[in-house]
């Protein structure tokens, strides 16, 4: 609990807009209110409870910048990367864990990150690990279809909000090829137009038609996939374990 914390009889829950900036603005407010927040949540996850008060946080780029640059200086870049990854996770307690992790970091500096026996440090590092693991898996398992006109389209529904991460990965990889990645679970589109990348709402979006020779490449891939397995070593259990169905729900026609 920060020094000089006001102790009174109600819980204060900070409500922010879901953005990374908004989250850091909430941390700023909590620190300057000198009060341990009972929770930091987004509006849609808000549950009204008895004896709690709510404070709507106004997102401010300036506040966010001040918190994040101070934290970066105190905890180092690697820790901030971990914080960002944990923030993208779908875990409900992520904000509170990150808040406490940062407060510990302001006290201990870089040493905070190696304190894995601390519950919050452990939580943040586990969440970050989950997010980065899902990103790695998705980057391997996602499949694009080439559309009429040459742009590519990919549909996926990850557990965590990893769209910004995979968007960056494919934008760097596919250089001159424009593409759209559709997070069907969250209704978001990641768009790359060969210059810029941005994330927009998918409301009203209708994916364009697949190009004419798309089927032949899908078939060729399936043929390759079926050929490459060695019959004498067949091990469907291991295969399923390494390739959980949830990653493939959108690609059944080309995946096993």
């Amino acid at each position: 609990m920060p020094y000089g914390t006001v102790l009174d009889d109600f819980d204060l829950i900070y409500v922010y807009d879901g953005s990374y900036q908004g989250f850091f603005s909430a941390i700023f407010d909590a620190v300057y209110d000198r009060r341990e927040p009972a929770g930091i949540v987004t509006g849609d996850r808000l549950q009204l409870s008895l004896g709690a008060r709510y404070k709507e946080v106004a997102t401010s780029a300036e506040k966010a910048r001040r918190v994040s640059s101070a934290a970066r200086q105190k905890l180092g870049g690697e820790a901030m990367r971990r914080v960002y990854l944990a923030f993208l996770s779908s875990d409900d307690g992520r904000e509170t864990a990150i808040y406490r992790y940062l407060m510990l970091g302001f006290r201990l500096g870089r040493a905070a990150s190696s304190r894995l026996t601390d519950a919050d440090v452990f939580r943040v590092s586990t969440l970050a690990q989950n997010v980065s693991r899902e990103t790695d898996k998705m980057q391997g398992f996602m499949r694009f279809s080439v559309m009429e006109g040459g742009a590519q389209y990919c549909r996926f529904s990850p557990k965590n909000n990893i769209l910004p991460l995979v968007l960056g990965h494919f934008a760097s990889r596919l250089g001159p090829i424009p593409f759209v990645i559709h997070d069907t679970g969250r209704g978001l589109l990641g768009v790359y137009d060969t210059h810029d990348k941005y994330i927009v709402s998918a409301e009203g979006f209708i994916p364009p038609e697949k190009s004419a020779d798309e089927k032949s490449f899908e078939r060729a891939w399936k043929l390759f996939y079926d050929t490459i397995g060695i019959a004498e070593r067949k091990n469907p259990r291991l295969m399923k374990q390494l390739m959980p169905a949830r990653y493939f729900r959108h690609y059944w026609d080309i995946a096993p």
Binding site: Q139, G140, H169, P176, I177, Y225, G229, N235, M239, M243
Partner: peptide, 20 residues
């Protein structure tokens, strides 16, 4: 201008029927 990148840890794109 080019297509493609590599990552130091590699990446699996599928697992065949023998689990490789």
């Amino acid at each position: 201008g080019g297509i493609g990148s590599t990552s130091p840890s590699g990446c699996c794109h599928a697992f065949s029927s023998d689990g490789r």
